[in-house]
Write a protein that binds this DNA or RNA. Structure first.
Lengths: 204, 204
DNA sequence: CTGCTTATAAGGCAAGCGTCTAATAAGGAG
DNA sequence: CTCCTTATTAGACGCTTGCCTTATAAGCAG
């Protein structure tokens, strides 16, 4: 083929869509390349736009990272609620749906799970990231508490705060395990283990 | 003061000590600055040596990172064993000592805990890091299994593999929680929760 | 004390990054 | 159809990084 005159593809997109593009590209970059490989220029490359555009939508790459984190948290919480709350009348089932959602491809898939690790890391050294992390944790725990509150109490129940903390820890721990090797601990096993932990902690 | 003639501090150290210096500086850098801030030059700055020295001891910065990971795993496993195995005769106590060691300043202190996060991240995208991670996980789980095997069995015990997986998840999850905010979940509470989980999973 | 090994420092180089600025064209308003 | 806004590209600049090469001196062998 004759070489096209290298016309720059300059389709103009709606600002909202472009922002979303860049956020999505950021997540993908973080998951694929880790914190070191995720540069502003690389994100733009992945999004298929010139490197100047980042600055047009975000103050700097760091800011894009923070907004990506915020949006990811928001989306995940919304989806977890949507998955579990409709079953609030049957607490055991609601909890199960919650576990399934947590380990779904949307939130624990290979294209996203690596990004959380980077955000956690940022949360420790950067105050603005820590705020997002804290808020997310509190809200996630509150949701969990709501689901668990309706379960019949065991005779030998732990204090509620302890039980919630432990269930939350099991979730995070298995999530990490799944992150490190979905071969060794596949999705179904993670969910089954969560169910087992819930049964053991709250009621038989 | 009159400016000293800028004599380069050129104390010659034993190769082993220098390597150890660089490894220690790497851990510190990772914990303080995260993956992005941990460059070869920054590590050398932290270690108080010129940037050329890194290449003299390691093939490249990446290689230093990998060796640091290996050594950290080795050290932690050795110390966990040393903390728990002397009490193998009293399994409940041995397990407790294990938990205390996991959350000790040596392995969960602010100067080191951030490094693990980076290594986990690397373990996903880089095969050589994954090998170290897998080996560490297997050995850690084997140690845990050894400690737990002596506990009296509950009537309603879970399959051993499940119980181990859950206890391991609780450890990792609480460790993350502690990492994200040692304010919200202080060390003593983490240890107490681990003890509670072990009691609930294995015997009363 | 002299000399050889090698640990250490320092400089140069290309590549990549973040930031800023200027030029261009897309697409709706009139 | 024309103009004006602004989304988009592209280039320049300074800085830092990783890699490599060369020069220096520390400390042991003789």
């Amino acid at each position: 083929m004759a070489s096209a005159p290298a016309v720059p593809r300059r389709r103009r997109a709606s600002p909202l869509a472009r922002r979303a593009d860049l956020v999505a590209a950021t997540v993908s970059c973080l998951a694929r390349l880790g914190a070191r490989g995720t540069t502003g220029r690389e994100i733009c490359r992945q999004a298929g736009v010139s490197h100047g555009l980042l600055r047009h939508y975000f103050r700097n790459p760091d800011n894009l990272l923070l907004e990506t984190y915020e949006q990811l948290c928001e989306d995940m919480l919304a989806q977890l609620e949507a998955a579990a709350l409709p079953f609030a009348a049957e607490p055991r089932e609601a909890l199960h749906r919650y576990f399934v959602a947590v380990f779904s491809d949307d939130w624990a898939g290979p294209d996203i799970i690596g990004a959380w690790m980077v955000f956690w890391q940022q949360a420790r050294s950067r105050a603005d990231f820590a705020v997002v992390s804290d808020s997310f944790n509190m809200r996630q725990r509150a949701l969990l508490e709501r689901l668990v509150a309706r379960l019949p109490a065991r005779a030998d129940a732990l204090p509620m705060a302890d039980a919630i903390a432990l269930l939350s820890a099991v979730l995070d721990g298995l999530w990490i395990e799944f992150y490190l090797s979905d071969q060794r601990t596949p999705r179904e096993r993670c969910i089954a283990l969560c169910d087992a932990a819930a049964r053991r902690l709250f009621s038989d």
